[in-house]
Design a protein around this nucleic acid. Structure first.
Length: 491
RNA sequence: CGGGGUGUAGCGUAGCCCGGUAUCGCGCCUGCUUUGGGAGCAGGAGGUCGUCAGUUCGAAUCUGGCCACCCCGACCA
């Protein structure tokens, strides 16, 4: 078997190989678009299912809006349109016909040109706000709390599986509110939902913050984000929540009558996470052997591998294994008993390690004779032989322990790779050699931000929400600064 | 969109410079032996060499066009 690419050798190749090897996704015949394979999609479904619950718990409802946006609607909110214009797929025709010069080929029928081009949504604010116009008349219609699970298209120049693909799956929440304060509270609430999901379900610590003006979502007054550190020290924006002010309400003329009968533009938010979370999950926990999944998002939480030499032995082992399967299932733990006779145990061990199954149980005649079983946890690779009786309770506890351990490990890694720096020269040297996150003082100007980006390729990831006020000087210009910002190279 | 590169079996490749009908590994199929860390042996199947044209008795190999993909930049969830 070919040796795996290790993280130390080539982090980028390690990632790509792993996505392929674990059966998560592959490149497709369409440029920049991926095929999400069953195992990868199963993880995405777990992510989706939990987020959906959390959105509903916070009062949101799901709906679905069209894939296409007429150009005239798309251009209504200027900044938004301008921001996405360079990466839009555009539908110009609605029919093909047989090529008169080659009957086996099709050509676009020039007579089927659309009067108005349709934009394949890169994000849905435009079509949704055009719709909201008809839904909102009174303060009684507010707040309007909608989420949509959808695919969007952004014609990226360079793509990477899960991290950046031309088409990707995501959810986008779009809410309308009567007051500015309420809309801001909503944007902040959803950032908390994302944070809770990232930390408690993905076991991935995140920094909550606000984007600088130049990194803000096109059309937003404020963009909140969660930023995570990957194992190569680079930052990954894992989710964003935008306070859109009245920009879209004004662009689409969405007004409501308040209690006094006065007409006001409504206040808006939008927030989203995408299949990029898959990339975040992979790059936060996985190792050189393969995927490492937090139990809460693992499609298979426990795998049981039988060891046997004959059909009779398999029969005996199966009886025990099935007992355990039944117990685990009743406890809500997903389990697979892999009695495939075409693969030998060693192959299965390697396979489930590659796939990141949190716990593996091996059961053979030797164990049966002693009333024991071998149990291995994926996160630490720790192997132990335990009493078969009551093993289900041990496994249930392992689910909790592994979930926690992954978070703690990632948290420790981040703590080890985040540092305060006050000198630009030191920063330049460190970001180049060590990577990681830096907490620095910045004068708040776009010029300084741009300079840092040009000279170091690092960007201001966010202004952390929990940053403490302290008097400092911008590391570049020496101008006064009130708090530190997080700066790093990013995906 | 600028710069560089690559297209040979399901995957990874050799051959190309110096033209003579394609190499090896993995995978796949069959059989036997195996099964506590990616099994061994034996046999077998699988290829319009990205595509179109040109040169030639003859093209994976030489020439030109086209297409696709990858890497590095600018852009980005």
């Amino acid at each position: 078997m070919a040796k795996n690419t290790t993280r130390a050798e080539d982090y980028s190749k390690w990632y790509n190989d792993l996505v392929n090897r674990a059966g998560l996704a592959e490149n497709s015949g369409v440029r920049g678009c991926m095929v999400i394979k069953p195992y990868g999609f199963a993880i995405w479904e777990k992510i989706q299912a939990q987020l959906d619950i959390m959105f509903k718990e916070t009062g949101h409802q799901n709906a679905y809006f069209p894939l296409f946006i007429p150009k005239s609607l798309f251009e209504a909110e200027e900044k938004n349109a301008e921001g996405f214009a360079k990466e839009c797929a555009v539908v110009t025709h609605y029919r093909l016909k047989t090529d008169p010069t080659d009957k086996t080929k099709l050509i676009v029928d020039p007579e089927a040109k659309l009067e108005e081009e349709l934009i394949v949504r890169p994000t849905s604010e435009a079509i949704i706000w055009n719709t909201y116009k008809g839904w909102i008349q009174s303060y009684r219609d507010l707040p309007l709390l909608i989420n949509q699970w959808a695919n969007v298209v952004r014609w990226e120049m360079r793509t990477r599986l899960f991290l950046r693909t031309s088409e990707f799956l995501w959810q986008e929440g779009h809410t309308a509110h009567a007051t500015k304060a309420e809309a801001i509270a909503e944007a902040e609430q959803m950032l908390e939902v994302y944070t809770e999901f990232a930390e408690n379900w993905m076991s991935m610590p995140v920094i909550r913050g606000k984007k600088t003006e130049s990194e803000r979502f096109a059309g937003a007054d404020d963009t909140y984000c969660i930023e995570a550190m990957m194992q190569d020290g680079k930052a990954l924006q894992a989710g964003t929540s935008h306070f859109l002010g009245q920009n879209f309400a004004k662009a689409f003329d969405v007004k409501f009558a308040d209690k006094d009968g006065k007409l006001e533009h409504v206040w808006a938010t939008s927030w989203g996470v995408s299949t990029r979370l898959m990339g975040a999950l992979i790059m936060t926990h996985s190792d050189d052997e393969g995927l490492v999944l937090p139990p809460k998002l693992a499609p298979i939480q426990v795998v049981i591998v039988p060891i046997y030499k004959s059909a009779e032995e398999l029969e005996l082992v199966s009886v025990k294994a099935n007992e355990l399967v039944k117990k685990l299932k009743s406890m809500g733990i997903s389990v697979k008993f892999d009695d495939d006779d075409n693969r030998r145990p060693g192959w299965k061990f390697a396979e489930y390690e590659t796939k990141g199954v949190p716990v593996r149980v091996a059961l053979g005649p030797r164990d049966l004779a002693e009333g024991k079983a071998e149990i291995v946890r994926r996160d630490t690779k720790e192997k132990s032989t335990v009493e078969f009786e009551g093993i289900e309770n041990l496994i249930a506890q392992l689910m909790i322990d592994i979930q926690e351990n992954l978070f703690n490990r990632a948290n420790q890694f981040r703590a080890d790779n985040i540092q305060k720096v006050d000198s630009y020269d030191v920063f330049k040297e460190k970001i180049e050699k060590e990577g990681g996150f830096y907490l620095v003082h910045w004068d708040g100007t776009a010029e300084t931000e741009a300079l840092i980006k040009t000279e170091t390729q690092a960007t201001i990831r966010c202004i952390p929400l929990d940053s403490v006020e302290e008097d400092g000087k911008c590391m570049v210009t020496g101008k006064p600064s009130k708090h530190r910002v997080v700066i790093a190279k990013a995906y």
